[in-house]
Amino acid sequence: MTTAADYAEFAAREAHGVSPAYERLALAVSRDHEMLALLGTLPPAKRQPNLLFGVVRFLGGPVEDPAAFRDFTMGNRPAVEAEMRTRATQTNEAGRCAVLLPVLAALPQPLALLEVGASAGLCLYPDRYAYRYGDHPVGSGEPVLDCAVTGVAPPARLPDVVWRAGLDLNPLDVTSPADVAWLDALVWPEHERRRARLRAAAAVAATEPPLLVRGDLADDLPDLAAKAPAGATLVVFHTSVLYQVPAPRREAFAEMVRGLPGHWIANETPDVLPYPGLPEPPGAALHNVLALDGTPLAWTLSHGQAMTWFA
């Protein structure tokens, strides 16, 4: 698929009805030969819309108006290119814990959590957040994570987490204002509730920062997993991460993680982690598949705002 087609598809499938600003920008970029030429100088993995838009926001550029966005991007091309080459889309959406919670709460307790592609580790605190599944609350405090759930009863309890660690090629420090500013820049412009949720989750994590290790998801996972405490159920999990990993590395990771003790929770799109015989997703929006130990369980929306259980 060409870069122009990628941006057009992003506008239609991901931004439409979710972010009018990013839908406008993505369509404009898909038709702009100069912008596409700029993106063409970058490695394929560095051309994605979320990375470009996040970098421009991080540098203080406008994202509401396509013409102003274009002027800023082309006028600051060296800085934009440099940031896009060194940064990655590390969206650390704590809301994803809401779709992980039904699985985590049902596993043998206590848990040792190990997140692959952890970013700043905000999804390592499912036991510290509050949830609202329709009119069913779980836990207390801030942030409150809302999730519309269909086909399964909401969990009755929070998990008991005794160890939390993360693996990332470029881990972010939740106590660093610059790193939190990058996470903030990755939140889409209209999503003020997500921005507030990010800040609240960062405040929770900063009181007890997780163990984050710089490393590769396949090469370095076994060593980190071996540090989990005895007597706790190891849970390796990841959500919206594998699309950034080349297919051969994905396959090597999946084969390796199946051989670890404990459990494996994946929450990825079905094109990067396919499963045979999936039912149709509940709508045209881009859905992830939530799976436990290779068995698909539910369709989920990418920020954890809804899940449809089919297992």
Rank of each mutant, 00 (worst) to 15 (best):
T269P: 01
T269G: 09
T269S: 09
P270W: 13
P270V: 06
D271I: 03
D271P: 03
D271N: 12
D271G: 03
D271T: 09
V272K: 10
L273R: 13
L273C: 04
L273E: 06
L273W: 14
P274Q: 11
P274A: 07
P274T: 07
P274G: 05
P274R: 13
P274M: 10
Y275A: 07
Y275V: 02
P276M: 08
P276Y: 12
G277Y: 14
G277M: 13
G277K: 15
G277W: 15
G277P: 10
L278F: 04
L278G: 03
L278R: 11
L278E: 07
L278Y: 05
L278K: 09
P279D: 08
P279A: 06
P279I: 07
P279F: 07
P279E: 08
E280H: 10
E280F: 02
E280N: 05
E280M: 05
P281L: 10
P281C: 06
P281Q: 12
P281F: 11
P282S: 11
P282A: 09
P282N: 12
P282T: 10
P282G: 08
G283W: 15
G283I: 13
G283Q: 15
A284Y: 08
A284W: 12
A284S: 14
A284E: 15
A285W: 10
A285D: 12
L286D: 03
L286E: 08
L286A: 07
L286P: 00
H287A: 06
H287F: 13
H287T: 04
N288Y: 06
N288C: 06
V289I: 06
V289N: 03
V289E: 01
L290M: 03
L290W: 09
L290G: 02
L290D: 02
L290C: 01
A291H: 11
A291R: 03
A291C: 04
L292M: 11
L292W: 14
G294A: 05
G294D: 08
T295G: 06
T295H: 15
T295I: 11
P296L: 00
P296S: 00
L297K: 03
L297S: 01
L297N: 05
L297A: 03
L297R: 12
A298H: 01
W299R: 02
W299E: 00
W299L: 00
T300H: 02
T300E: 00
T300C: 04
T300M: 03
L301E: 13
L301M: 13
S302V: 12
S302Q: 14
S302Y: 03
